[in-house]
Design a protein around this nucleic acid. Structure first.
Lengths: 196, 196
DNA sequence: TTGGTTGACATACCAGCGGTATGCCAAGAA
DNA sequence: TTCTTGGCATACCGCTGGTATGTCAACCAA
């Protein structure tokens, strides 16, 4: 009887690598952390790392995927608590700001993501997580006549970019007023979309 | 009599390095272009490069500074053509979108900038060029009562982020309709700020 | 004019990084 | 029990950013 099954061992190593990398990437940035540092912290060797991931960038991609899924779930959960479609959008946006304000999530998701993987791939990944929710909610609101009929994709990009930048700024800002002010400004922005 | 004065030669080499680096960084991205490639294209040696710039990152910083100043001037010029304060804001924003849609400017200014220098330094640099214009115009409009009184800094960040993301998306988008749609959406966004 | 000084590079070199080829040993299959 | 295979470990390599040192022309003083 083996002490640990192969699948167990495999998953265990992979998880450790992902967790350790996420911590290091988040705290120091992708470029500043070497593979040596990662494998040491994970208590494995480079051979193990390359057995699980094709490259350093591939490891980062896996980490980024998890981070984005996590944020996406938080946003979706916040939205689904509300019944009113309009409030779903607002709640989702505010939750995104909250989640993306954590410095760890930021560095990986908003700073290094586009630079390491290229903007196109980053956008595609974002699309399949949090950004899609946004576009869907907006489309829903257009159909219901809550906001004026208009192309929903450009609007989603404008809002997404606004929230990303706001989150980055908020994480660096010391004043607690800034969070409230930003939320208010975002609310005004969203509110302006409604048909009066 | 010397063929070329020292100051001339110095400036000449520096300019060549900046121009060559800008091209390479823009087309391939910061991480993908090596110093060897730069010095070869500039027809100098690494010694020359390190005589002018303290590091690869410092070289990038110098390039980024020039790019940002260029964009800032374009935005300011577009704004100053108009007399009406509101139209100044609108024209400046639209001009920014136009300028930042060029893939070369993007890669340096919006993708690699934050990742290479860190978001804080990038923000500080952006602040001293195009972003400050935005905040100033917004402040002016609040004073004149054209837009509702509100903290202007968070608003500037939201708008700035929205435009950055929009420019990135537009550069990748094939459809020419997208540009018009985005301009329209941005106009609606800005228009919503006005007191009615 | 000339000797010495300085500045603008060129050359040679190095540590460390991402990446790879190979070896090893236990878990699973037969 | 034997054989195969998967999950690593070890040893190694090329290349990159960075540095220490050498060199020669521009500049300056006498």
């Amino acid at each position: 009887m083996p002490q640990t099954t192969r699948a167990q061992q495999r998953e265990r190593t992979r998880r450790t690598l992902l967790d350790v990398s996420r911590e290091l990437f988040a705290s120091q940035g992708y470029a500043a952390v070497g593979l040596a540092e990662i494998v040491e912290a994970a208590d494995v060797t480079k051979g193990a790392l390359y057995h699980h991931f094709a490259s350093k960038a591939a490891l980062f991609r896996a980490v980024l995927t998890e981070v984005q899924e996590e944020v996406g779930e938080r946003v979706a959960a916040a939205a689904e608590e509300r019944k009113d479609p309009w409030e779903r959008l607002a709640a989702g946006c505010q939750e995104f700001i909250t989640a993306a304000t954590h410095p760890d999530i930021q560095r990986i998701m908003l700073i290094d993501g586009p630079a390491v993987l290229g903007w196109h791939e980053w956008r595609a990944m974002d699309e399949s997580s949090s950004a899609r929710h946004l576009a869907e909610e907006l489309g829903d609101l257009v159909e219901r006549g809550v906001i004026a009929p208009q192309p929903v994709i450009p609007l989603a990009h404008l809002l997404s970019g606004a929230m990303n930048e706001a989150a980055l700024w908020l994480a660096a800002s010391g004043s607690p007023d800034d969070l409230a002010d930003t939320r208010a400004a975002l609310s005004r922005m969203l509110g302006a979309l409604r048909v009066h």
